[in-house]
Write a protein that binds this DNA or RNA. Structure first.
Lengths: 133, 133
DNA sequence: CAACAGCTTTACGTTAACGTAAAGGTCAAA
DNA sequence: TTTGACCTTTACGTTAACGTAAAGCTGTTG
């Protein structure tokens, strides 16, 4: 079983971030944990949000963008305009992700090339260096 | 034919960035264009570097990381240690890119889910709203 | 009870990546 | 020749995303 709630340092340890960062995300409106007295109490849902944030950061999303992503997870009413706005945002994200995929693929190709050049140079170096052959 | 050289504003226009940014990249050692008198003259190679920078930025690379990427493109000597260092860096980048791919794929799945929920809500809303059915 | 471990808020500091003047050199067209 | 469209350097300003104290509450363990 997973614990139902976490302390701030639980999450910090588990997700390998500082408590300062977690509090900062809350300040920026990306989290809103419960309180038991003065202390913050985090739910499994909060943890999911945190993971979403970290994943977003890894691919270069700003916290503002991460906040939007999280909001896409919120239960929302039946407000039709709201829903269409949301669909728009989803489409935007999708386009961005696809561009990023292309960027990454391109970089991988370039890394292939760079690696080949390295190996070639090493081969020359190791084979008695008969350069300009 | 493509022009062999570019002015700073040529590149700024074409790549849709500011001249300030381009000069900043140079300051940070990511570019080193020729000079004709006082003016900067950019080669096709410089342009490639700039594109690499922009691509890197799109997936969240820092300028320092972009600089490393560019350096992988530089013609390098036959220094064996250097070459192995470089192969190491390439491997690191590769791992990072693969993680980013996974992150993006996961996000795409989550966008799918969010989109479905939106459509479901819209369907309910539009069908006379026989809620809790 | 004293000392610690872990939580809190408040607030100033820092780094990256530019933005935004300010002040001036250069060359061609009016 | 002066206006305009470029270019230059220097330098201070700004935003994001935290880092880093400082100062204090709170529970428990020797």
């Amino acid at each position: 079983m997973q614990p139902l709630t976490y302390s701030i340092s639980d999450l910090a340890r588990e997700l390998d971030i500082t408590t300062r960062a977690i509090r900062f995300y809350e300040e920026q409106g990306l989290l809103s944990p419960e309180r038991r007295g003065q202390e913050r109490v985090y739910s499994a849902r909060d943890k999911v949000s945190l993971k979403l944030i970290l994943r977003g950061k890894r691919i270069g999303f700003s916290l503002a963008e991460c906040r939007e992503l999280i909001s896409l997870y919120d239960p929302m009413g039946d407000n039709q305009k709201q829903l269409n706005t949301m669909l728009g945002k989803i489409a935007e994200r999708r386009a961005q992700l696809e561009q990023q995929m292309l960027d990454i693929q391109q970089m991988q190709i370039e890394l292939d090339t760079a690696e080949e050049r390295c190996h070639a140079a090493l081969t020359r170096t190791l084979s008695g260096r008969p350069i300009s052959a």
